[in-house]
């Protein structure tokens, strides 16, 4: 099984890296550019015969307790067979 975890800054938190990337893209002439926000992406392989339900619970806990700081970040994830 494989889990994909996407971590991004909360909407209410300023993202200076995203802002800088947006500025660079604008300078390069990309049209119709709105807000740009960046984040982190984790691809996690799960071994050891967990059920999908167990794996989902495990990944959710991992993301909540370790991969993100709830003060500034939020996450979403998927688990695939």
């Amino acid at each position: 099984m494989k889990a994909h975890v996407y971590v991004s800054l909360k909407k209410t938190v300023l993202d200076p890296q995203g802002k800088t990337i947006q500025g660079a893209l604008k300078k390069m002439g990309y049209q119709g550019l709105g807000d740009v926000r960046q984040g982190k992406f984790f691809e996690i392989a799960l071994n050891g015969g967990l059920t999908k339900e167990q794996a989902t619970a495990e990944v959710e806990k991992m993301a909540r307790e370790v991969l993100t700081n709830p003060v500034i970040e939020e996450f979403r994830f998927t688990v695939e067979e």
């Binding site: 938190v13 200076p16 890296q17 700081n69 003060v71």
Partner: peptide, 11 residues
């Protein structure tokens, strides 16, 4: 302590 220390605004 409350809050968090983020990447410097000037990167």
């Amino acid at each position: 302590l409350p809050g968090a220390l983020m990447r410097n605004a000037g990167l």
